[in-house]
Amino acid sequence: MRLFKLLFFILCVSLQACVAQSDKINGVSFVAANAEVYETHVKPIIDVKANYAAIMPFGFIRDLKHPNIVYNTHRQWFGETAEGARQYVGELRKKNIKIMLKPQIWVWHGEFTGFIEMNNEADWTTLEASYSKFILEYAQLAEELKVEIFCIGTELERFIKHRPEYWHQLVLEIRKMYKGKLTYAANWDEFKRTPFWGAMDFIGIDAYFHVSANKTPTVEECLQGWNPHVEVIKKLSSEVGRPILFTEFGYRSVDFTGREPWKSDRNMGAVNLEAQANATKALFKTFWKEDWFSGGFVWKWFINHANSGGANDTRFTPQNKPTEAVIKYYFKSS
């Protein structure tokens, strides 16, 4: 009888561990395109063992001082619109891929959204009304489609800093119409100051932290580089009582990829597939085993897999590079 009880206890613990592992969010950031998606576009996501995809419709602002957001126009790519988001979600759901709907703002000429800042009260009020219309329409879509996670904004630090009460009220409005889990995608150097984490279900971080200044960092060097960041991230998670979600993570396949991972300049230098793979492996080894860490979304994954990435590509995508195998290994193991 004692032996039976012992074996039963071990079995229960093992099953609990399996359940905990299967709850990890193994996501890809599914880039909006000017076309519908079908099973052939979704299959590579299944093959890499992802269980989540971030769908990212876009709104556009003319410049950092302009208060009006334009979205759902005929000039946008299909995948950047609500209609495209609906179609993408429907196709992904056929293969049991869960969804984070993550509407984003694009400032013309690619200026950083964290610097959006109005000059006067009238423009701030206009921006608030425009952003509310934009994000609440997508919150309604998120509820209609029953997506698992809704991201209420991405890298909007100055907007939040100057208008914190607006954001607190916005969360309440979103909660009235959307019943799933909420997060906000804070930039890697912003998340410590975001004032409403207690109202979120996840602390969302776009995880472009400096981890190494070397041309081709080793996995061990990147692991060491993560140490100071991990302490800060873990402490915040404990203080707020919310798990961490990397709303974006990834590295470019270039020299010095761990030095300033947030940079996307096209003239960053030579292809370095090893650097990208090593930095990615270190990130997984650092975080995926932690119970206070919920998972994350690889930046970024294009719908036309066969024609994306590859041995001569310097961009973020891991597709058709050694890093794709790294991601598959850790997604499969978690």
Score class of each variant (00 low, 15 high):
Cys12Trp: 13
Asn72Met: 11
Thr81Ala: 04
Ile45Phe: 04
Phe30Glu: 03
Asp47Tyr: 08
Gly27Trp: 01
Glu36Pro: 07
Glu83Asp: 15
Glu36Thr: 06
Cys12Asp: 14
His41Lys: 10
His66Gly: 04
His74Ser: 13
Leu92Pro: 05
Gln16Cys: 11
Asp47Phe: 10
Pro67Glu: 02
Ala50Lys: 01
Asn96Cys: 14
Glu39Ala: 14
Phe58Pro: 00
Ser14Asp: 15
Asp47Gln: 13
Asp47Ala: 13
Leu15Val: 15
Ile45Gln: 00
Trp77Ala: 09
Leu64Gly: 02
Phe9Met: 10
Arg62Asn: 11
Asn51Trp: 08
Lys98Val: 09
Trp77Asp: 10
Ile105Cys: 02
Asn51Asp: 09
Arg75Ala: 14
Leu11Arg: 08
Gly110Ser: 13
Ile61Val: 14
Val48Leu: 08
Val89Gln: 03
Ile10Gln: 10
Met100Pro: 03
Val89Cys: 05
Gln76Ala: 07
Ala17Ile: 09
Thr40Tyr: 13
Val107Phe: 01
Tyr71Lys: 04
Cys18Val: 11
Ser29Tyr: 07
Gly27Ser: 07
Val31Ile: 11
Ala35Met: 06
Cys18Tyr: 13
Lys49His: 11
Arg93Ile: 10
Lys65Arg: 12
Gly59Asn: 03
Gln21Cys: 13
Gly79Pro: 01
Ala35Pro: 07
Trp77Glu: 05
Ile97His: 02
Ala54Arg: 00
Pro44Ser: 12
Lys43Asp: 13
Lys43Gly: 07
